[in-house]
Each structure stands twice: as C-alpha cells, then as structure tokens.
C-alpha cells in the first residue's frame, strides 16, 4: 500500500460532492468510521495501491483523481465480503461498480486495461446474446495489452484439449443478437 502517509489537503484539488455524484447509495460513504473491517476482509487488499479503508476516506474527502487513478477498484473481485461486514451498512461493493463506471466515462489511464475487459465482454453480449469464450478472449486482448494474452496461452491450450473452449463462431447470430435492446437502453440512459 503505497499511499502517502501525510497529504496536505489544502494543496490538492477536492470535490466534496464526489460520493453524492457516484450514483446508487454512494452518498452513504459519509457514514464510514474508518474501522478498517473492509481492508481486513478484502482478499485483494495486499495487491492494491490504496487499501479499501483508505479509498473510502479519500472518497469522503472528494479526492477524485487519486481515487479514480488508483488500482483499487480494478482489483476488486466483487466478493461482497466488505459490504456484508461493514458495520456502517455501506453498500461498498456496489459503490465500487459506480467508481468503475466513472473511471471509464472519464477515460482514465487506470481504466484502460481493465475497462477493455468490460467493453469486450459487452460487445460479445451485444452481438451474440451469449458470451462465447474464445471470441471474448480475442476481443479482450485486442482492446487491451496483447502481451497479456501470453499469460493465458498455457491454460487456453489445456482447455481446448479438454474440449472446454469452442473454436467455432456462433452461426445463429441474428436470432439472439441484443443489438435492438442495447440501442434502446442507450436511448433511455441518454434521456435520464
């Protein structure tokens, strides 16, 4: 956890409305009492640059850039452990989804690699209605860093040998495409 020990809050840009703008029950982050239960419960905290407890304090303080550029939200595996254990009843895991949305909207560097994962996944859902593992991986690696693909080669080979991954492309694409539905959702989101 490489967050600075001391931060001069008079010298950094802050947006106190940050958590209110997040969506969902983001404003409940103001209830946080810094007990640290979230960090202690988080299976990924050791790999994060800012621990969950620190991140929630930074959200309260409106340290938008620092939060959105940290790796914390992208390391969250949505295990819901912090959310069910938080003594203040803050929907932490769900608020992390809103943080990801915000980071992706603002096209931040931190979101490039992990954001590619979500966009690739959504593309496949939109076109085929179901997620085809092989096509999904190919799209993901094209959108993100192609070097990551090497890490998967070994597992991919074993999976193909065991008949776990299908190489054929879906033929019934028209039948199940969610193109219309995705477009409608985008229109409704734009209205709001």
């Amino acid at each position: 956890m490489a967050a600075p020990e001391v931060m001069d809050l008079t010298k950094v840009g802050r947006d106190p409305t940050f958590s209110d703008r997040l969506g969902g029950d983001g404003k409940l982050v103001h209830r946080c009492i810094q007990c640290g239960t979230c960090t202690a419960s988080c299976p990924a905290s050791a790999a994060m640059d800012i621990s969950p407890r620190q991140m929630w304090r930074m959200v309260q303080l409106g340290l938008v850039d620092e939060v959105l550029e940290s790796t914390t939200m992208w390391l969250c595996s949505l295990c819901y452990q912090c959310q069910v254990r938080c003594p203040r009843g803050i929907p932490l895991t769900e608020t992390i989804t809103y943080l990801k949305q915000t980071a992706m909207k603002e096209g931040l560097v931190s979101s490039r690699q992990s954001g590619a994962f979500y966009r690739a996944f959504a593309d496949v859902m939109r076109r085929y209605g179901r997620n085809r593992e092989m096509e999904f991986m190919v799209r993901y690696f094209m959108k993100g860093n192609p070097l990551t693909a090497f890490k998967f080669v070994r597992m991919g080979t074993v999976m193909m040998m065991r008949g776990k991954v299908h190489l054929e492309l879906p033929v019934d694409r028209e039948g199940r495409s969610l193109e219309k539905l995705f477009r409608r959702v985008a229109e409704l989101e734009a209205e709001a």
């Binding site: 969506g23 969902g24 949505l78 989804t97 990801k100 949305q101 992706m104 994962f117 979500y118 966009r119 996944f121 959504a122 859902m125 209605g129 179901r130 997620n131 199940r176 969610l178 959702v185 985008a186 989101e189």
Partner: peptide, 13 residues
Amino acid sequence: TCCGASAASVVSD
C-alpha cells in the same frame, strides 16, 4: 441470453 455478468452494470446501470 447472458445475464450481464460483472460487465453490464459497469457499462451502464
């Protein structure tokens, strides 16, 4: 069709 997995809600509520 797909339930959206962990990706859909990140793309849009």
